[in-house]
């Protein structure tokens, strides 16, 4: 565990906490894409199936369980408890356009053709694009609340910090995992436009608003 990896995990955890607190405190999930949240649940469920077969460390196990549990809790809040506030008119991204190609890609490009390995690979590919419905929602409504921007910034930073972790691990441990690295690069690139708006607007106290 290096500092980039730890900061990445903490940033990921922070993003989840910000999102849950935002929904809970405001009693509203307006501006949040339920489609992206469903995709994240699929990502964690398919990636962490190895909880049943391998033990890495208590830290690893606890974090995996937290990510799985909180992703389902978020879906419960959005689709059951605060259903009336869910922005379904704007959350119209067709998730099968992400689920099907990433699954096919996982069947074609993986380390080993086994159920667990293909599902792990699928989760990595799917995670890299899972934020698209959320970015699509923001682009449709042309704005995001500050708290939603903080959530997106923390969530985007997590994989960016993992990129630094992979550089560190390659240099220090000669360890590298191409599937995760390439997907992580794609994932981070998708956030770049948002990062730019966050730094130039939200950090200066302005609301994140897209030009008309």
């Amino acid at each position: 565990m290096n500092i980039f990896r730890l900061l990445g995990d903490l940033s990921h955890l922070l993003a989840i906490i910000i999102l849950l607190l935002k929904i809970w405190k405001s009693r509203s999930c307006a501006g949040i894409s339920g489609k992206s949240q469903i995709l994240f649940s699929v990502v964690y469920t398919t990636r962490y199936l190895d909880l049943l077969t391998t033990h890495v460390s208590p830290y690893n196990t606890v974090m995996k369980l937290v990510f799985i549990f909180t992703s389902y809790a978020t879906i419960y809040l959005m689709y059951v408890k605060f259903k009336a506030t869910y922005d379904h008119n704007h959350d119209t991204f067709r998730i099968e356009f992400l689920l099907i190609p990433t699954f096919i890609l996982a069947l074609l490009i993986n380390h080993e053709f086994t159920v667990l390995e293909v599902l792990w690979t699928f989760s990595i590919y799917l995670e890299s694009v899972a934020i698209l419905p959320q970015l699509f929602l923001v682009s449709k409504t042309r704005e995001a609340e500050s708290i939603t921007s903080h959530y997106l910034f923390a969530l985007g930073s997590y994989r960016a910090l993992y990129l630094l972790n992979w550089v560190y691990r390659y240099v220090v441990e000669s360890h590298y995992e191409l599937i995760a690295i390439i997907s992580g690069v794609v994932q981070t690139i998708l956030y770049c436009d948002f990062f730019y708006l966050y730094i130039t607007k939200v950090l200066k106290g302005k609301k994140l608003q897209l030009p008309a």
């Binding site: 990896r5 995990d9 990921h12 190895d50 391998t54 890495v56 460390s57 690893n60 974090m63 995996k64 990510f67 380390h111 080993e112 390995e117 792990w120 993992y162 972790n165 360890h175 995992e177 995760a180």
Partner: peptide
């Protein structure tokens, strides 16, 4: 056969 890298990351 290619080795499957260890999954110690999240």
């Amino acid at each position: 056969e290619e080795d499957v890298p260890a999954k110690d990351e999240l």
